[in-house]
Every structure is written in C-alpha cells, then in structure tokens.
Design a protein around this nucleic acid. Structure first.
Lengths: 209, 209
DNA sequence: TTAAATATCCCTTTTTTACAGGATAGCATC
DNA sequence: GATGCTATCCTGTAAAAAAGGGATATTTAA
C-alpha cells in the first residue's frame, strides 16, 4: 500500500517543488493538491489521503484553523504543517490542533520522506529547526483571553480610551477598566504600551482588520 | 540563445518547484541555484546568468541587500524578486535596488515565463498582486524618525515609563516627553496604544530584540 | 553661512491609566 | 448545589500620559 499524500498550499512553486521531490518515490502516491482551505475540504469529501502537507498561511483560512477542522472531521488523517517561518507560536498551534509534525520549506527530500514515514508510524516529526525552536521558547505560553477581553484589546490598540470603548460596546467605563486590568495581568504587561506589544507577540491582534 | 536562469532561495521546495516549472521550457537554460547569498556571489564569479530569481528572505543576507550588491558588480544581469509576501515595502526596496521585476511564489508557470520574457526585453514585470499592492498602499508613507526617537519608541514598547526611559538614556523626563510628543505627531497616533500598533504597522519596531 | 532639523530642557492643566479593594449576577459543569 | 469562570459595576488614590505652551544649544544640509 502506497502512502496517499495530499498538499494544501497556495504557492504554486512550493506545490510543484513537493511534487517534484515526491514523484520518484515509489512508496508515495500523489493524490492531488489544493490552493486554499475550501477546495481542500471539498476534495476530502471525495477522497481521503493518508497524509496532508499543509501550509500555515493561506488566502481564505489559516492552516491552523484548517488543521483543526480537518482533524475533527477526519481524525485518521495525519497532518504535517509546512511553513517558511520558524515561528514557535505557529508550530505550537498546529500541534495543539492535531498536527502530527512540522516541516520547514527548506527541508530536503530526505527530511520530507523521513517526516512522512515517521508520521505514518504514528509518531511525531519536527524538522530540526522547528524542534529547536519549540525547546527554546518554552515559556512562551499564550494567555487565554475571553471574547470580551479580545474585543477590548483590539479597541485599545486602535487608540481608544476606556470611555470611548465603554460607549462603543455599551458598558460602563468601569467594566472596560476591569477588562483592561485583567488583560494587563494575563499578558503580564506593565502598561498599555507593553500590552499592545505583547498582543502582537502572542498574535492576539494583527494588522489587517 | 537560451536564457540562462539562476535561482537564489534557501527553500529547497521552492527551488525544486521552479526547476520543475522550467525544465520543459526550451528557451530556458537552468544554470544552477544557491541556497544563500554568499554561495550566490561565489557562483557569479564563475558564470553569469541572464536572469536571477531571488528570494527576499535568506539566512545570511536579505535579498534586498544581495540585489544591490549583484547589480553593482554585474549591471547586465536582470533580477526578479521572489516572495511569499505581498508586502509593499519589500517590493519597493527590491525595485529601488535595481530589480527588474517581482513575482510571488504562487505564480503559475505562465506568469513565470511571461515575467522572464518581459524582463529579457528590458521591461519591468510585476505579478498582478504585487502591482496591485504597489498601487493600493500608496498613502502608506512611513514616517521618518530620528535615532533618538527610534530608541525611545522601542523603550516605550518595552513598557517603560518616561521616568524610566529618562534614567536609562541619561536625559531628563522632559526630553523623553518631548520625544514622545513628536512620535505621537509623526505617526499620527492618538495615544501610546495606537503608537505601538502603528510602530508595528510601519515596521519601526519588531519582536526580535 | 544661514536655515532647518535635532536634541535637550522646563512649566501647567486635564485626561487617562494603574492599582487596590471590593460586589453581584449569569451560566455551565460537575 | 457548589464551584469556577465570565461579565458587569462601583469607590478611591496615585501615577502617568496627553496637550498646550515655550526655550536653547548643536548638528546637518542647502
């Protein structure tokens, strides 16, 4: 039985690269690729691969979310995260959402094959750099925020004061102040400036919205 | 005469992808690839390509710097920037440093060939998305900060107060306050929170330091 | 060399945050 | 039905930042 491999990546060159790396491997069957999350989900309704190589950044949905969704619907599929970044938080989130491994796009053919084989045995595979990154940044626990806290955090980063936020979300300024207090405590920030910086660090807010 | 193409990219899968896309093109001669800036420069001493496809992010040196260096030494070589990001500042900088075009890594084989052909005619080629990005983000003027202002901005983002910053950089709190005032004005921020957010937006500060 | 930009310092007033201490109500889970 | 989490609201004080004004050397560039 050959291992059925499917790729989700919006970068044509990367898809071609993986295809090229796998085409001479007799143990691998390339069953197709998708350029975005939706066409991936559509494909999986027709045919299930053994392994999905999944980019973390895609136009319609992040690989992190897609990973979760696929794992919920098809728990038997093994997922390997693919990324150019060696970014601890991404790796962590992919693993949290059920990924079995993580490969950087500068991986060699040997690493790619090693990763697929390991994962088919039910083990975890992390490319060297990714594993190092995980070990190093161990204290980087992402704080868990409530919906309201996230909302307030975003408005703070927009430059709004407590009073302005209070008006906007129809609560008293005291409530906003409490959320702010909790945000400072949860992110361990000394003040608003560090709060916003740490929010970026933990990817709790982003530039596009 | 076939067009001699050389690739500089530290992502193995991307190199393989481009090789795969170009291998059946009779007008193209693949003369090699480099995984970092230094081996690229070493290769160019031996043999000169017509076109270099160059990644913007590499381990030892950014493509933006490498582009400049190559163009200074070998002005006749055409350079096409390659990136996964659709980031206006990168595109602009590559063009400023002598690149003839810019391609995103999700370009198709047709776009890749079109780009190479256009550039060999001495024209400029921007992939659709890249060109759009250049047009769209036109009003995104990055404010010019002085050395001192940058220094203060970073310390603000670290969560330090005016007094703490004053002690750290050996000036009075009034001075720090003035710098802060100027930062708010230059970045057009309403308060510290928005200041830090906009600092990220304009890439005036980053997470790693 | 003159003008412009930079870096430094000071004052006042108002607004906003930070921190400390609460309280209450709803909701889910166990 | 107790426990824990979330969201809401309150009082009060102290610290910090925002906004307004202005001043003076030094460096840079035209």
């Amino acid at each position: 039985m050959r291992t059925k491999v499917f790729i989700v990546d919006d970068h044509y060159m990367v898809v071609e690269g993986i295809r090229s790396l796998l085409q001479n491997e007799k143990s691998i069957e390339w069953i197709g690729h998708a350029m975005n999350a939706n066409s991936c989900l559509a494909f999986l309704k027709q045919q299930l691969p053994d392994v999905i190589l999944m980019d973390i950044s895609m136009p319609d949905k992040s690989g992190i979310d897609l990973c979760k969704e696929v794992k919920e619907k098809y728990p038997s599929v093994f997922i390997i995260g693919l990324s150019t970044f060696n970014q601890q938080s991404f790796i962590q989130k992919m693993m949290d959402n059920g990924a079995s491994g993580y490969l950087l796009k500068n991986a060699t053919q040997e690493e790619l094959m090693e990763g697929i084989e390991m994962i088919m045995k039910g083990k975890v595979y992390l490319s060297d750099e990714a594993a190092q990154s995980l070990r190093k940044n161990n204290q980087g626990e992402v704080p868990v925020l409530t919906r309201r806290e996230k909302e307030v955090l975003e408005l703070i980063a927009e430059g709004m004061t407590n009073n302005e936020i209070a008006e906007k979300i129809f609560v008293s300024a005291s409530t906003v102040d409490t959320h702010r207090k909790n945000l400072l405590a949860k992110l361990e920030a000394k003040n608003t400036a560090e709060l916003v910086k740490l929010a970026f660090f933990h990817k709790l807010i982003s530039l596009d919205n």
